[in-house]
Simulated scan of single mutants.
Amino acid sequence: MITVHARIDGRVVEQPLGLGDPLPPGTVWIDLLRPDESERAHVGALTGCDLPTREEMKEIEASSQLYTEGEAIYMTSPIIARADSPHPEQGELTFVLTPRHMITVRFNEPRSVTTFAARTMRQPELLAGRRARCSACSTR
């Protein structure tokens, strides 16, 4: 499933993205949840990013969790979903940061992603887009 978060008129709008659909204007975050090969390839073609497969995300070594390809920065991290349940799930979450978009690729549903998505609806400045200054790295 592909979900797009776009800034429109100062607010964040969340909508599904179908195969073959173009990115809506104002798209700043593209979230892929359990993407199949065609969804992964579609978003890769739209953004110019080589998105990792589930197998690649699982096999990544600690020394390769953060890397760059072209203008994109990739970071894969282990995550826990359903941590408060009797059966927590371990998985991986890949972030891809480009000058125009943030892309997330995941195969489980950690609460942190859902919480962040809900926060962006209340605080659209969290998804300020490519012109925003990154306070963590002091770059544009």
Rank of each mutant, 00 (worst) to 15 (best):
G18R: 15
L19V: 12
L32V: 05
I60G: 00
D50Q: 09
E14W: 05
V13E: 14
D36F: 06
T47H: 04
Q15P: 05
D9H: 13
C49T: 07
E14V: 15
P35Q: 07
G48I: 03
H42D: 07
E61L: 11
L33A: 15
D21K: 04
K58F: 01
V12E: 07
C49Y: 07
G18T: 15
D31F: 09
P24S: 12
M57E: 02
I60P: 00
A41C: 11
P52C: 02
V13Q: 13
C49V: 15
G48V: 03
A45T: 13
I30T: 02
E39T: 04
P25F: 11
D31I: 09
T53Y: 01
D9E: 10
G20N: 09
G10M: 14
G26Y: 13
D9L: 12
L17C: 09
V28S: 08
G10C: 10
L17Q: 02
D21C: 05
T53L: 01
G18E: 11
I60C: 01
A45I: 06
D31E: 14
R34K: 14
R40C: 05
E39G: 06
L32N: 02
V43M: 05
P24K: 08
H42G: 07
V12L: 03
R34T: 15
E59H: 13
P25E: 12
V28Y: 06
E55F: 00
A41E: 13
D31H: 11
Q15G: 09
A45K: 11
P22Q: 12
H42R: 11
G18H: 05
P16Y: 11
R11V: 15
V28F: 03
L32M: 06
E55Y: 00
S38W: 04
G10H: 02
V43D: 02
L46G: 03
V28W: 08
E39Q: 08
E59T: 12
V13M: 13
T53P: 01
R54D: 03
H42A: 12
C49E: 08
R40M: 07
R34Q: 12
D31W: 11
P52D: 03
P22W: 07
L23V: 13
E55H: 02
V13C: 05
V12W: 06
H42E: 12
P16H: 05
G18K: 13
E39F: 06
P52W: 00
L51Y: 08
C49F: 08
G20Q: 09
P52V: 00
V43A: 02
V28R: 13
A41H: 05
E55T: 00
R11W: 08
T47Y: 08
L32K: 01
S38R: 13
R54F: 01
P35S: 05
V28Q: 12
C49D: 10
R40S: 04
A41P: 01
L23S: 08
D50F: 07
E61N: 09
E55P: 02
T47P: 05
L51P: 06
R54S: 03
G48C: 04
E14R: 14
G44R: 01
I60S: 00
L51F: 03
D21A: 15
G18P: 06
E37A: 14
P16F: 09
E39V: 07
G44W: 03
E56H: 00
P24I: 15
D31S: 14
A41M: 10
G48L: 04
